[in-house]
Amino acid sequence: MKEAGMSLIVKRITKITVSLIFLYGVYIVLHGHITPGGGFAGGVIIALSFIHLVLAFGKEAALKRLNETAVSAIESLGGLLFWGIALLGLLGGVFFLNILPKGRIFHLFSSGTIVLCNIAIFLKVGAGLFAIFIALAAMRMPAEKKEGKK
């Protein structure tokens, strides 16, 4: 019985790097209104950190941390949050109006709803792309087993 995933070296290095990749994604998202980047790029980086886990440790180990139901829930939550921010603008009279206080430029807590939009898009993109990858990887597993039996 072969162990799931790749060799010991890959697993060891993955344990070190995966949290750094995750942290970098969070940085890109939270600083999206100050430095280049934003919700989309940060979401893809976070999805990549989970894909890194799937490739190194196999599908089961990664899904133990974040299962498919949770991924669907997080993606829907991101979409609803973005809609909520859009409807929040209606309080000021216009769809998508930036009604929160703007704060001082170049500071982390600035630019009103843009930070919240970044977080919503990050949840949506990260969970959505990871769901697509799980679907593609899960599709392949039974097919490989069948080929092996033949």
């Binding site: 100050i34 703007k102 970044n118 898009i121």
Partner: peptide, 24 residues
């Protein structure tokens, strides 16, 4: 108008947020 130092971010998430909603 937006208080965001990154103008690209302020365009896609404030001035043109409706387009981003379509992309989402």
């Amino acid at each position: 108008k937006t208080g965001a130092a990154n103008i690209v971010s302020s365009v896609i998430l404030d001035f043109r947020a409706y387009d981003t909603l379509g992309e989402a």
